[in-house]
Nucleic acid binder design. Structure first.
Lengths: 233, 233
DNA sequence: TTCCGAATGTCGGCTGGCCGACAGACAGAG
DNA sequence: CTCTGTCTGTCGGCCAGCCGACATTCGGAA
């Protein structure tokens, strides 16, 4: 019954895997999976580990990070409650190429590769949904590539903020509140720049009155003005 | 019968979609699709077009290119005979975000989104294969991101050459022949640098005896030495 | 074979932001 | 409340490669 409690207490969002399945399909998937807890900063898996399970995040936040052979690791994305992760290596075989680390205490449903394959044989809607999610991530990474090539660091940071705000922002009065705590280093690792540059850009945006930071949470005062800064005149 | 002739005349490769399905699954897919020819430089689809078909390249070469709002378009990858493309927008819905352009006269099998959805309901092995391919592409793009952030332009160019050689190279005596004609601009658009920088790097690699160009085709004289140049001492 | 558009070779000025470093602030654990 | 590890703020030297430009070469169509 614990798995179902986790299911019921979770907030539903647009990337919420289980909520986008039919009740029967979701029930079958939950029944086939196991619930696991991870402490803050604990690795759910690391690059090099066998890729034998897929995960559905019920509560918490998980950072998906691709290490470089030499150089800076790159944060590819964060997973929030409802998100699926760990699917790519399960689908393509081979070991993990990314780390998945809990940014806060997190609860996940875990499904083994074998169980998943069996499940998908009789649940074609779920297979289509997985394809959608993989395709969404392809698009997101394609955008990251194009931005890395074409945009300066400030533009990349602003675009990241806008993306996060669009996806996870909450309107409070005139502002958009982004209730995710991100360090400057994390922002840097997402847009491929240095922590010092992020610090400098955020400081500038705050001086210009476009946003402010409260306890490492971003408060956007004008999405329109911010967006305007990403387009050349 | 023409569709089947195309099928039989194609060379089989590791990314070859149809060859990796069972005969029955492949036959059903071919039966549901239509054959189309595209002339060199013709667009199969462009960014902004509706994403209503998925394509299986039978012959030829197709460039998948993501345009930037402002700035340089980025070549995400080339598709070769056997490759599937156009799946992402079919899976996730919405219009195309990339262009697909034939680099040479090309023949494709075309399957509509509706037919694909129906097909996948009764062919779960194909759904798994599509998931694999999408996951492979995710990995490829993840690597591109990490390389853009961490590597200098020379390293990125060398890594691209090694990747292409590993995938599409043919051993001839001591050399590896890459039988794909690539302009310096195309290489630049794949690794996010300028044409001039590519010219300069390739010139240097040739002077060092690591590779040579014949009719715009790369001939690698030492994979090991090239690979050694991508790791710092 | 000829011709021409595209591709390649070359050059040097300029700059965004990396880098290493250090000091001060602060969030959160105990 | 205290303490400490992490995070943020600041600084200035340095350089990879972008950029614009122009000349030469070359592949492929006619």
């Amino acid at each position: 019954m614990e798995a179902n409690q986790g299911h019921l207490s979770r907030q539903s969002g647009p990337t919420d895997f289980l909520a986008r399945l039919s009740s029967a399909d979701a029930r079958d998937l939950v029944a086939a999976s196991q619930r696991k807890l991870f402490a803050k900063n604990e690795f759910i898996f690391k690059a090099g580990d066998p890729g034998r399970h897929v995960y559905f995040l019920q509560q918490g936040r998980v950072k998906i990070c691709q290490p470089a052979q030499e150089g800076k690791d790159v944060i590819l994305w964060f997973c929030f409650a409802g998100d699926m992760f760990g699917m790519a290596e399960v689908a393509r075989g081979g070991g993990r190429v990314v780390h998945a680390q809990a940014c806060e205490a997190s609860e996940v449903l875990v499904l083994s590769q074998t169980e998943l394959t069996d499940y998908l044989k009789t649940h074609s809607a779920a297979a289509l949904l997985i394809m959608q999610i993989l395709a969404d991530r392809l698009r997101a990474l394609g955008d990251v590539v194009v931005n890395l090539i074409n945009d300066d660091a400030q533009t990349r940071i602003i675009k990241l903020i806008l993306r996060l705000a669009t996806r996870y922002g909450v309107r409070v009065d005139q502002d958009i509140h982004l209730n995710v705590q991100l360090t400057h280093q994390e922002i840097a690792d997402m847009v491929g720049t240095t922590r010092q540059t992020v610090t400098s850009v955020l400081s500038q945006l705050q001086r210009q009155g476009l946003m402010r930071l409260e306890n490492r949470r971003i408060r956007i005062e004008s999405m329109e003005l911010l967006d305007g800064m990403t387009n050349p005149t």
